Deep mutational scan, measured.
Amino acid sequence: SKTSNTIRVFLPNKQRTVVNVRNGMSLHDCLMKALKVRG
C-alpha cells in the first residue's frame, strides 16, 4: 500500500492548504508544488 502523509500548512491571510507528501519527495518540493498550484 502506498503511504502518503498529509500535512496542513497554514499560510498568511488565514489561508490554509493541505500538502500530500509522497515517498521520494521532500517536504520542500511538495510545498513549492502546492504553492505554485495556489499561486
Rank of each mutant, 00 (worst) to 15 (best):
S1T: 14
S1H: 14
S1P: 15
S1Q: 15
S1L: 10
S1A: 06
K2V: 03
K2G: 14
K2M: 12
T3I: 13
S4I: 10
S4G: 09
N5G: 14
N5I: 07
N5T: 13
N5D: 09
N5K: 14
T6R: 10
T6S: 11
T6M: 12
T6V: 15
T6L: 11
I7T: 03
I7F: 08
I7S: 01
I7P: 03
I7L: 10
I7V: 10
R8C: 05
R8P: 02
R8H: 04
V9G: 00
V9M: 02
F10C: 04
F10T: 06
F10Y: 09
F10V: 02
F10P: 07
F10I: 03
L11R: 01
L11Q: 00
L11M: 07
L11V: 02
P12M: 06
P12T: 02
N13I: 05
N13H: 04
N13T: 14
N13Y: 08
K14M: 09
K14W: 06
K14T: 06
K14Q: 06
K14R: 08
Q15K: 02
Q15L: 02
Q15P: 01
R16G: 04
R16P: 01
R16C: 05
T17F: 06
T17R: 06
T17A: 04
V18G: 02
V18A: 08
V18I: 13
V18T: 09
V18E: 03
V19L: 13
V19A: 09
V19D: 00
V19F: 12
V19I: 12
N20D: 04
N20T: 10
N20S: 07
N20I: 12
V21A: 11
V21L: 07
R22D: 04
R22S: 08
R22H: 11
R22C: 10
R22P: 11
R22F: 03
N23S: 10
N23C: 06
N23Y: 11
N23T: 11
N23D: 11
N23I: 08
G24A: 12
G24S: 14
G24V: 14
G24D: 08
M25K: 13
M25T: 12
M25V: 13
M25L: 09
S26I: 15
S26R: 07
S26N: 10
S26H: 06
L27P: 00
L27K: 03
L27Q: 00
L27V: 15
L27R: 01
H28C: 13
H28Q: 14
H28Y: 12
D29V: 09
D29E: 07
D29N: 12
D29G: 11
C30S: 11
C30R: 03
L31M: 08
L31V: 07
L31P: 00
M32R: 07
M32V: 10
M32K: 09
M32S: 07
K33Q: 03
K33N: 03
K33R: 08
K33E: 01
K33D: 03
L35R: 00
L35M: 11
L35Q: 00
K36E: 05
K36I: 09
K36N: 15
K36M: 12
V37M: 14
V37L: 10
V37E: 01
V37A: 07
V37W: 14
V37G: 03
R38P: 01
R38C: 00
R38G: 00
G39S: 13
G39E: 04
G39D: 15
